[in-house]
Design a binder for these strands. Sequence first.
DNA 1: ACAAGGATTCACT
DNA 2: GTGAATCCTTGTA
Length: 194
Amino acid sequence: MTALDGPVDQVAPMLLGGLLRHSEVAVRITEVEAYDGASDPASHAYRGRTARTEVMFGPPGRLYVYFSYGMHWAANVVCGPDGTASGTLLRSGEVVEGLDVARARRGRAADRDLARGPGRLTQALGINGDHVGTSVLGGGPVTLTFDPQPGAAVSVGPRVGVSAEADRPWRFWLTGDRFVSVYKRSPRAPAALA
DNA sequence: ACAAGGATTCACT
DNA sequence: GTGAATCCTTGTA
């Protein structure tokens, strides 16, 4: 029983403002996306258990990390009760600790861009495939600290990059935050309704 | 065994 | 704004 075992579209916005830490680097989460296994064609787990998506069916709080476009890692926090496949993609954040380490990992990039984007965020934190299945709820190398801010304005909008169900409003971000990635609709997604 | 496509980023025009 | 890089996972033969 954790704060993560509810419906993913309710859990995802709760991660906003939270702190994800991997040793000396910590990131304040500013943007997330929810993915549900059973009802969500855009989810990797939609077609059932496979070797890759197995972790999404497990207990909440574990990391699901996958390799995308042949060059980027993207990190999810598994949500929902054990046996249900859902997860929250960590899309963007602000590096608030370990700036020097994050800068070294990200090459030449503006501080604002250190973790602004799913692939950038994992790179700044040093998260990769080795961390699949690691719990972020304590005891592991990666930890997630909730920092709920009841008064904070949260925006909701369509998801990025997915070609199916792009218009499901399951992307959440802190309204007006500088450390939110720019929205760019997938070229494969059907045109938005007028 | 093979072919297709992707929950993206970066450099260049 | 546009296009290339790059390799893993999955479905199909």
